[in-house]
Amino acid sequence: MSVTAGFGGRRGDDDERLPPGQYRVDDFPVLTAGPTPLVETDSWALTVRDDQVERTWSWDEFTALEVESVTTDIHCVTHWSKFDTQWAGVSVATLLDEAGVRDDAPYAQVYCYGGYTTNLPVEDLVDRVALVAHTFDGDPLEVEHGGPARLLVPHLYLWKSAKWIRGIRLVDHDQPGFWESAGYHNHGDPWLEQRYAGD
């Protein structure tokens, strides 16, 4: 570490809420690898499956499930964090229960409209706050932020919170998703600063 002459920096009151290498923003930047897919709610569906069972919800069925609301900080691997974001949706634990998938599968693959994929351990979905969110700040989730519905796993870097989610598949073997195959960390814990492969 060497000092950058002339750089003072700006310190906030809430720096202990910032994981290492992050800075606070008040807007809501967008990061997506391709064009924004437009998914109408009348053709939208969400599927949860394992190697035995499969359950699909239409938009009306999905939005009739019990709603959970969370207020949470979110952290993007590109170094911004946003505090106190307000979300509502259906908890992933509820979806897994309703689907009746096996409870001993170690890994989840998440796949999306537009082709994006990500992977994470099931325990990150069931032991922590994890939603399929349809509401942000009290309004329907905007399409550039992943609407009609996105995964929200706020304790991991935001690329794990896959936009335009279409399904979750529980599997025995971990398989890297889109960014995990392109140089980013397989797990992505911001407090351990797991940004890139090997961190």
Binding site: M1, V3, T4, R11, G21, H79
Partner: peptide, 16 residues
Amino acid sequence: VDLRLTAPDGYQATRS
């Protein structure tokens, strides 16, 4: 690339 600046008191800021 990620670029990191360090102030004299050790405070750091990182951007891409």
